[in-house]
Structures are given as structure tokens and as C-alpha cells.
Amino acid sequence: MASASVAAPAETGKDLLFDASARTRWRLGFDRVAGWLLPVLFLVAIVPILDLVYYIASQALPTLSWAVLTNTNPHDPYALGVPIISTVYVMLWATAVAVALGLFGGVATAEFLSERAAGWMRMSANLLVGTPSVVIGYFGYFALVLGLGWGYSFIAGATTLAFFMTPYIFRVTDLAYSSIPRPIREAALGSGARPYQYILKVAAPIALPQILNGVFLAVAIGVGETAPIVLTSTHSVLVPQTLYSPVSFLTAEIWLNFSQPPGQALALAFQAAFVVLVVVVALNIVVRIISARYQKRLEGLYQ
């Protein structure tokens, strides 16, 4: 083998480096083609996104104006103002409930549970995230609409949505508290801080940006969700007056109107879709930016 080849004269670097065997040409050629073709697959993601955003915008923008966005006239069935305000109310309620459940749950899991028990809770949260939204909607329907007798109502819809959002906030809070560097935690507890003092005064300022980020993410997910609210509430032309009033929701408006013939109803569906899309994409971008910054800060803490 090699001994023979070293002794052999006249083999030049050219011969050795430009191996023209079919096998080598195939290997190098395949690699080169893969290098060109695989990146093209990004188009499978990029083209639909651009197409979708362009389509929704091009259908919605011609009929969209400030007057349309703020039209809350209950006698105009195609007013967008009521769904927007109702959506804000629903999201406020849902976020409040989800934060209450997720925040305390996440902190308690990160700080008080043994690693083993925390693992179970994390798995549960992951499973909730993986639960189809229609199943959460059914839970809301059976437990809240029928079980608690809330009927098709604001409170039933918003609370069901909160259940859907809770695991996201839970996970992020848990992660934020778990990833606070140990020396900081030990220093605080070692210097006599009570656990709640550590949680509120030492850890909270560090964890807060990420938790806020999780809340944004949960809001982005909640505002785009349809099934939980459509199954637990019904359409209304009014902003909800009581907790038990029916309530309108942007995604529900799309669901109700998307198959209408071209006209005001379909225009409303596109307007609602555009508003939802803008909110969701904007929140997603904010989430990524905060996340990247937080990551840097956390790395700083570790040094």
C-alpha cells in the first residue's frame, strides 16, 4: 500500500488530486448538486409565506380604513370594530387567567419541586401544547358551557382560550427560573434571603424579560386560535356587556364568513384575517428579538 506508493516515482500531485475515476466524479458532483438543490427547498417555506401575506393584504387593504377598523355600529353586521374590541377583551381575560395559572405554576415547578416531579410537570405542559385545539375546545364546552352552566358566553370562550395558552406561559416561566445561574441562587439563599424574597427580588428581574416574552408568544397563539372560542361562544354584534354575554372574535368572524360569495361578508373575513395576521406576525418578531437579547444577557450572567 502506502509504502509502495511512496517509493514509486513519477506520481504527481496532479494525478493524485485530480482523480478522474467515475466514482470520484459522482461523489463530488453529487455533493455539488446537493449544495445547489437543497437550499432551493427554502422556497417551499418562503414562497407560501410571501404569497399568503401578499394575498391577504391585497384582498383586505382595498376595503380597510380607519373608519372600518373603528366601526362599532351594532346595526352594521359587517363592522370590524366590535370584533376587534371583543377580541381585546377576550385576550385580556384569557391572558390574565393564563398568566395566573402559568406563572405561579412555572415558578413553583422551577423552585419547589424535585427534579423528578418537575420533569412530570414539564412533560404535562408539553403534552398540553401538543393537544389539538379542538380537544381543548371540547373541554371548554363540556366543562364550562354545560358543566358550570356558563352557556355560550364571553367567560366560557375566554377561559377556554386561557387553558390553551397556559402551558406556553408555564413552560417559559419554568425555563426562565430554572436557567438562573446557580451561583446567583445560592448566593441569595446563602445570605439568608427567604425563598419568596429570592423569587421576587433576585430572580424576578432576571427572569422577567423571558416571561414577558412567553406572554407575548401565548397572546400570539391565542389571538390566532379559532376552535377553542368558536366551540364555547357564539357570534354577537355587540361588545360583551356581561361576563355571560355572547362574544365575537376576529378568527370566529373569518370562520363565519370565509365561504360567503364576494361581498361585504367576505371583505369582513379578509379584514379580520389581515388584522390577525399583522398582530401575530408582529408579536412573533418581537418575541424573537427579545429572545435573542435575553439569550445574550443570560450568557453574560454565566461569565
Binding site: 373569518i254 373575513a269 395576521l277
Partner: peptide, 9 residues
């Protein structure tokens, strides 16, 4: 991040 209802329409 795109909501499924937006995919739907």
C-alpha cells in the same frame, strides 16, 4: 406562527 384560520382562508 401563521394562524391556521389564515392558512384556511
Amino acid at each position: 406562527g401563521i394562524p391556521s384560520i389564515v392558512y384556511g382562508i
